[in-house]
């Protein structure tokens, strides 16, 4: 099956951005870029996690977030945040067809995590075609 791929340079750039995110907060232990229709594109995980399954799930959760926002007469879903007893998962749209997801422990401050994600998303959006 042909899937959306990024170039070698693009891959290196993504890994640099992921490294920066993890340096900015030790709590971040997973960053994944996937497509809006649920394919894994690139990732950096400090723990073993099923990236293909997560990619599909992030696609579903973001689409549900966008749909719920529409049904509630609200515009533009910026993030979907899953707050758990032992961590946070932030998912946001990256350009038209990509999704950026960040997985962190509760050691992260949610505000800082937002800021790290937003900044990474801006960099990635500018550099990924």
């Amino acid at each position: 099956m042909s899937q959306l791929k990024i170039s070698e340079n693009g891959e290196r750039f993504c890994q640099d951005v992921f490294d920066t995110m993890m340096q900015q907060s030790d709590a971040v232990y997973g960053v994944l870029i996937s497509t809006v229709d649920g394919h894994d594109v690139t990732r950096k995980f400090k723990r073993d996690m099923p990236s293909a399954k997560l990619a599909a799930m992030f696609s579903s959760v973001l689409a549900l977030g966008e749909t719920i926002a529409r049904e509630a007469d609200q515009a533009l879903c910026r993030y979907v945040i899953v707050e758990n007893s032992d961590g946070y998962i932030l998912t946001l749209k990256l350009k038209e067809k990509l999704v950026l997801s960040v997985i962190a422990t509760t050691d992260a401050n949610l505000g800082i995590l937002h800021s790290i994600c937003r900044s990474a998303a801006d960099k990635l959006s500018k550099n990924l075609r």
Binding site: T35, V36, G38, H39, S59, T67, E96
Partner: peptide, 23 residues
């Protein structure tokens, strides 16, 4: 109907532009 359509990025794009990803 409530839809959760998103753009297709794989082979399915030859058949349809969007696909349901949640429900």
């Amino acid at each position: 109907p409530v839809r959760t359509d998103t753009a297709t990025t794989d082979d399915l794009a030859e058949v349809k532009d969007v696909t349901t990803v949640a429900m």
